[in-house]
Each structure stands twice: as structure tokens, then as C-alpha cells.
Write a protein that binds this DNA or RNA. Structure first.
Length: 156
DNA sequence: GCCAACGTTGGC
DNA sequence: GCCAACGTTGGC
């Protein structure tokens, strides 16, 4: 099993939105970065765990989700009316892929980015590296556990 | 809203 | 294949 962190701008799609979806499942569409796509297309497997991250507005880890459908073409790339329309990809040779994720839990207290930087054991997290902007990124099992434990300790 | 850091595009 | 110009991301 692998562990991931996925970013979303809460104004665009928040963890509350995920929680309110039918079956609490949502396709992770709109990723238009090759490295992030490769992770989704090639490495994300059923049951993989995901840290849900809110970017830009009060950046923080806000909860967890899991992968419930492995990669398939992101059809929004072919929709001229979609914000993430990509005129250069065609249906015979899909360029962009997505997975479905399902809500697991929302932290009672989100963990803000500055707080993450202070937690021992997270120094090497991709998220915390300078200039890191990947919207889909790997997390180690150790990092994942540290964050879950930290979140749980905040709820006591 | 600003802007630094990245990623992509396209002329040559 | 280089690299300048442009567009985007995301912390602040």
C-alpha cells in the first residue's frame, strides 16, 4: 500500500465537498501536470491512503481519503467548456488521467502548514521542500502515521 | 493581490 | 536542443 498527498484549493473543491458527494466519492479531475499524472496513472492503487490538503487559503492538511478507483482517462480534458480543457489531447490517445477517491475522515483540527514544519520526522516531506508545487505527491508510511497521530492528539 | 519558483511553449 | 517568454501554482 502506498501513501499520497493531494492538493486542492478549497474554493474549488474542499474536503467538505468530498464528504457531501454521493457515496463520498469524487473523480480527481483537472490535473494537468505530467509528474502528478504519472503518479495517478502508474502508481496509485486501490486502497492507497491519501492526505487531503487545502492549498492557498490557509494551507493545511485537513483529513484523509482513499483510492477507490484506479486510473482512467480524465474526460474533462476533452470538454471545450471545462476549465481544464486541453485541445491537444484526443480520445484515441488520452493524455490526462485521474483516479476516484473516497472520503475517510476530516480532522477536527486541520494541521496548518507552519505547524507541519515543526513536527519531528516530517523534514523530508515533499510538501515541505522549497519550491515544491506538485499537486499529487508521494508520502512515506512514516510521514502518514506521524500526521495521523498528530491529528488524533489534537482531538483529545 | 503580490510575486518567486516552476513548468511549458515555441522561435531559432 | 537551447533558452527566453509566458502561464500557473501557491505561500504569504
Amino acid at each position: 500500500m502506498k501513501y499520497w498527498l493531494m492538493k486542492s484549493e478549497p474554493n474549488d473543491f474542499s474536503i467538505e465537498d468530498l464528504k457531501n458527494r454521493p457515496n463520498q466519492i469524487e473523480p480527481w479531475d483537472g490535473v494537468r501536470n505530467y509528474q502528478a499524472r504519472n503518479y495517478m496513472r502508474d502508481e496509485m492503487k486501490l486502497g492507497d491512503r491519501v492526505l487531503f490538503y487545502h492549498s492557498r487559503t490557509n494551507p493545511s492538511v485537513v483529513g484523509t481519503a482513499k483510492v477507490v478507483k484506479e486510473s482512467y482517462p480524465d474526460h474533462t480534458a476533452w470538454d471545450p467548456n471545462d476549465h481544464h480543457f486541453d485541445p491537444k489531447t484526443d480520445k484515441d490517445n488520452p493524455r490526462w488521467y485521474m483516479v476516484d477517491v473516497q472520503f475517510e475522515q476530516e480532522f477536527v483540527r486541520p494541521i496548518p502548514l507552519p505547524e507541519l514544519r515543526k513536527i519531528a520526522g516530517l523534514e523530508k516531506m515533499v510538501l515541505l521542500q522549497k519550491g515544491s508545487r506538485l499537486s499529487v505527491q508521494p508520502v512515506t508510511e512514516g510521514e502518514f502515521e506521524i500526521i495521523l497521530n498528530y491529528a488524533a492528539s489534537q482531538e483529545a
